[in-house]
C-alpha cells in the first residue's frame, strides 16, 4: 500500500467495513505501529513531535460527560500543546463561528448528539493542525450540521491543509474529495485523482436528448442501453464524445442535450471490490 497526501487537497480513504481504514489511520496517528513500511510527514520520517500537527476525529468518539464544554475543549487543546490562553482564544473564535457561545458552561451530558459532534469537531481543529484526519465525520449529523462541517473542511483545504477523510459513503466522496484511495482487506486496490479515475473507468456512455425521430441505421453505429421518446443512452467504445455528437448533427437530429456519462465513484468502487474478490 502506498499513498500520498498533498497540502490543499482532500483525500478520501474508501473501503468496505473491515478493510483496514481505521488501522491505517491509527498508524498515521502513532496509536499503533506498522510491522513494516514507513510513514513520512512533510518529507521526514513520522515522529512523536508531528502528532501535534495532526488533528484526528475518530469514528467512535466520546467526551467526558461530566465536564463542561469550554473546560473540555481547553483540556483537548492543552493535550495538543496549546497553552490555556491560546486554547481559550481559539475556542472563542469557534464558538462565535458556530454561534454556540451559550454552550460553554453546559455539561457534555446535556448536549444532543449533533451538538457534541460540533464540540468534537472544534476539539479536533483547535490546534490548527496541518493534517486533518476525519473518520466518518458526518455519521450522526443532521443535514444542516453536515453542511456546516463540509464547509469547514473546504475552508481548511483553501488554507492549504491536507485532509484525510475516511468513509464508506460514496456520494460524499464525489462532492468533496480530490483524490481517493480504495482499500480492501488491507490492500490499496485503486488510488488516484477523482477526475482521472472517472476518465479511466468511463465506459463511453452518452446520454442524448433529442426531438423527432432517430435515424434508421442508428443502432448499427451504437449500442443502445436504453431509449425513450426523446432520450437515449448509448455506448460507443471507439468514438470520442465529439465524434458521437458529430454523427447526430450530420444525421440532422435535433439534439437538445448531450452528456457523457461518467461512472460514479460508487460504481467504480463496487466494480473494483468485486474484481478484487474474484481474483
Amino acid at each position: 500500500m502506498s499513498m500520498n497526501l498533498q497540502g490543499g487537497s482532500i483525500f478520501g480513504l474508501l473501503g468496505p467495513n473491515g478493510a483496514g481504514k481505521t488501522t491505517l489511520i491509527r498508524m498515521i496517528t502513532r496509536i499503533i505501529f506498522p510491522d513494516s513500511g514507513s510513514i513520512l510527514f512533510k518529507g521526514e520520517p513520522m515522529e512523536e513531535r508531528h502528532v501535534h500537527q495532526i488533528g484526528y476525529m475518530p469514528e467512535e468518539r466520546g467526551l467526558y460527560k461530566k465536564m463542561k464544554v469550554r473546560e473540555h475543549l481547553v483540556y483537548l487543546g492543552r493535550l495538543k500543546g496549546l497553552s490555556s490562553r491560546e486554547a481559550a482564544e481559539k475556542i472563542n473564535f469557534w464558538f462565535k463561528k458556530f454561534d454556540i457561545e451559550s454552550w460553554e458552561n453546559k455539561k457534555i451530558e446535556e448536549l444532543s448528539k449533533g451538538m457534541s459532534q460540533k464540540v468534537q469537531f472544534i476539539g479536533t481543529v483547535l490546534h490548527e493542525p496541518d493534517l486533518l484526519i476525519l473518520d466518518e465525520p458526518f455519521s450522526g449529523l443532521d443535514p444542516i450540521n453536515s453542511m456546516l462541517i463540509e464547509q469547514e473542511i473546504r475552508n481548511f483545504k483553501a488554507q492549504g491543509k491536507a485532509i484525510l477523510f475516511s468513509t464508506h459513503r460514496m456520494e460524499q466522496v464525489e462532492g468533496i474529495c480530490d483524490t481517493i484511495a480504495l482499500i480492501n482487506k488491507g490492500e490499496n486496490i485503486l488510488c488516484g485523482e477523482v477526475k482521472v479515475l472517472k476518465q479511466q473507468f468511463k465506459e463511453n456512455k452518452f446520454e442524448v436528448g433529442f426531438e423527432g425521430a432517430l435515424p434508421e441505421h442508428f443502432q448499427q453505429h451504437f449500442k443502445v442501453l436504453s431509449q425513450s421518446e426523446n432520450r437515449a443512452v448509448i455506448s460507443s467504445e471507439n468514438n470520442t464524445s465529439n465524434e458521437v455528437l458529430k454523427y447526430f448533427i450530420e444525421q440532422n437530429v435535433t439534439v437538445n442535450s448531450f452528456k457523457e456519462l461518467l461512472p460514479s465513484i460508487n460504481e467504480i468502487f463496487i466494480k473494483n471490490v468485486e474484481k478484487a474478490a474474484a481474483l
Binding site: T29, R30, I31, V51, I54, Y56, M57, P58, E60, R61, G62, L63, Y64, K65, L76, L79, K80, Q120, G123
Partner: peptide, 11 residues
C-alpha cells in the same frame, strides 16, 4: 465512552 479514541492521538 470512546473518549480514549480521541485522546490517544494526543497522548
Amino acid at each position: 465512552n470512546r473518549i480514549v479514541e480521541v485522546l490517544v492521538s494526543s497522548v
